[in-house]
Write a protein that binds this DNA or RNA. Structure first.
Lengths: 121, 121
DNA sequence: CCGCATCCACCGTGATACTG
DNA sequence: CAGTATCACGGTGGATGCGG
């Protein structure tokens, strides 16, 4: 007999699955800031991301309709990515989460430190 | 040379790490709806969660200062959990994410179906 | 009633090398 | 330039059983 409120969270968990993972946020953020972004620009803009992880992240976001991918069949090839309208709304909402994170960052760190200290005793 | 906007996302990723995982959202949501919640009430309210996963989730949230845990040394023992103020603000923000998820749920599913269909060809 | 310990399967992640 | 292919690893999540 699950609680009613818990039924509501299913769509939320779907979003979080999409956006969690180490790199998705970085890609969305960079693309939101720059507009149109090329593959190599992602590589330069996001520290420590590997080619493989960048590709996988881009594919997943494209699959979910958050990113469009356009190939220019030139030599050398160019591939451009941009956010969809849905993704832009998403990043705006995520920025509110960022606000929360900044306001409570110190609090969370302190709580964690205290908890760990208490466990050690 | 990382992009400036990408530097901003660090706190956001911290939040997401905390809230991602299969169960954290369910715990926060249920606790937000009920106020004070006992261990067994979580077990009944959240479908398919195991004792172990519930325990781990509660510990992590407590560690981060999002949940308080109070033990009543009675027989049988009672343990009550409630959200901290920080957690309440967090769940409010998350509800905005839920709004986004509901509004775009159909869109995302359609995009995904089409992408998969296109890949199969 | 509440929680911890152990063991195990899986998948996301990364390193490396190759291609149109 | 923009990927793909393959291999290997570690951490997270799940099943089960014991304990205060």
């Amino acid at each position: 007999m699950p609680h009613a409120a818990v039924q509501e969270i299913c769509p939320l968990n779907e979003v979080l699955d999409r956006v969690s993972g180490k790199w998705a946020i970085g890609v969305l953020t960079l693309c939101g800031a720059e507009g149109v972004v090329r593959f190599t620009e992602f590589e330069r803009g996001i520290p420590d991301i590997s080619r493989r992880m960048l590709t996988l992240t881009l594919r997943n976001l494209e699959r979910d309709g958050l990113l469009t991918r356009t190939v220019h069949p030139t030599v050398p090839p160019k591939v451009k990515y941009r956010l969809t309208e849905a993704a832009r709304e998403l990043t705006e909402t995520l920025s509110l989460l960022t606000d929360w994170a900044k306001r409570h960052q110190a609090y969370v760190h302190a709580a964690r430190a205290e908890y760990d200290a208490a466990s050690a005793r």
